[in-house]
Write a protein that binds this DNA or RNA. Structure first.
Ligand SMILES: [Mn+2]
Ligand SMILES: [Mn+2]
Ligand SMILES: [Zn+2]
Ligand SMILES: [Zn+2]
Lengths: 141, 141
DNA sequence: ATTCATTTTGCAAGTCATTTGCATTTACAT
DNA sequence: ATGTAAATGCAAATGACTTGCAAAATGAAT
């Protein structure tokens, strides 16, 4: 009766093996919700399993993305962030000062975009909405 | 009395020199409005000025971005697109089938996001809003 | 517990877009 | 025509990410 998360069950169901590395990556996302780069995941897991390799991180991040367990965010040009894939969806407010990423639930598609899309015969599958600027702390110089 | 564009004037005002390469890059964006990768700009300009180098393309794209003449778009993970920076701003609807990028003028910030941002004391400077999916042609399989 | 097919890993090397250092060339004010 | 700052071409470097492959680990079947 280990405290196996739904994630680990989902992996098993799909014929994936539960390696220490994989467990640690998952545990990290579950224990410290946030938006992380592959580098950050690597460093965190490396603290516990020092033999882990970067390619293992990438391979597992991709696997977890494909299974819908985590989500890849292209917030910053040239570097991906990953977050646990919560039900529903949300958008981000990103501070260019401290890098903090807050989440917002307002969604442009529900309110304004959908009718425009229908008019142009476009089948939308996903969308991105991010706001950049300075948070309260960073803007008070 | 050459038909010098406002862009070339702006460059001169800032002490930039008008090289053939620079002129050609600008002319391309003006003559064929669209959303281009550095590669695409390179190929187009190379057709006229065969000695042009990729680093010249990148250096000029950055320069033109910094001067607000063109805009860098991070639509696709890992590859930047550039477009002429029109007055006002707009957003994009991107077809995952044919790659076509249509522009839309509806803006989530004007209608919904601004009050939320004010409430959280966030000073927004920019935002991104993109919709992905399949255009009329691509979705009729 | 042992066996074994299959999956996963570590490692090293490879991509690919973009950047950088530097010697040479070019633009343009004088 | 000259001088100087700016820009270019070239080659090498970067940095995030990917891939091939032999060795190791997992877990289902004995
Ligand atoms: Mn989030
Ligand atoms: Mn556009
Ligand atoms: Zn949304
Ligand atoms: Zn907008």
């Amino acid at each position: 009766m280990s405290n196996t998360s739904w994630i680990e069950n989902k992996l098993k169901e799909n014929g994936c093996k539960l390696t220490e590395q994989r467990r640690l990556i998952i545990k990290f996302f579950e224990a410290e919700p946030g938006h992380y780069t592959a580098q950050e995941v690597f460093e965190k897991v490396k603290g516990i399993c020092s033999k882990i390799n970067f390619s293992t991180i990438y391979r597992n991040l991709e696997l977890l993305c494909n299974m819908g367990i985590i989500k890849k965010l292209d917030i910053e040009s040239g570097i991906s962030h990953y977050e646990l894939n919560k039900p529903g969806h949300h958008h981000h407010v990103v501070c260019k000062g401290c890098g903090d990423m807050k989440e917002i639930d307002i969604c442009p598609c529900e309110t304004i975009a959908n009718k425009e899309l229908k008019a142009m015969g476009f089948q939308a599958t996903e969308h991105k909405f991010e706001i950049y600027g300075y948070c309260r702390n960073c803007s008070k110089k």
